[in-house]
Amino acid sequence: MQFDIQVKMTIYRHFAETGIGPSVKEVADRVGSDVKTVLDTYRRLCAQRLLVLEADGSSIRMASPFSGVPTQHVAESGGTRYFGNCAWDALGVIAALQRSGIVHSRCEQSGEPLRLEVGLDGPEASDWLFHCLVPAAKWWDDIVFT
């Protein structure tokens, strides 16, 4: 269990420090283990819905709120650019980092750009809206689509 926490924290800290996800080899090196053992932990973190992997079984697609691939939902904070998995996660990046930042995204219908300043107490006043097509009970049927 302690090893799984060590792997989880290594992944999340890498995202927080760099804005991108680590390779499984980087994680293995940082925790002083081997790729196979780390991949076993990945499977357990996936079961806890803390990690979503790409089809290759080792690249990190999601370590929510962080995205391992570029998306339209960007959070800038502390001079680093982060990708969120969705609108919710873009604000989630700021919440996880616990420092102020700016969220950049767009209106999905019109393409109008969104620039939202977010402080430690929350976002500036805004009448933009968040819409989720998929009901909560179905989110994990296809979390990438959700």
Binding site: R13, P65, W88, D89, S126, F130
Partner: peptide, 22 residues
């Protein structure tokens, strides 16, 4: 059209889900 969420509500969701994630 599903239920709409305000930016204030979304911030509450973001902090509840992720403020301790690190």
């Amino acid at each position: 059209v599903q239920p709409l969420v305000s930016m204030g509500q979304l911030w509450m969701l973001a902090t509840t889900w992720y403020s301790t994630r690190l």
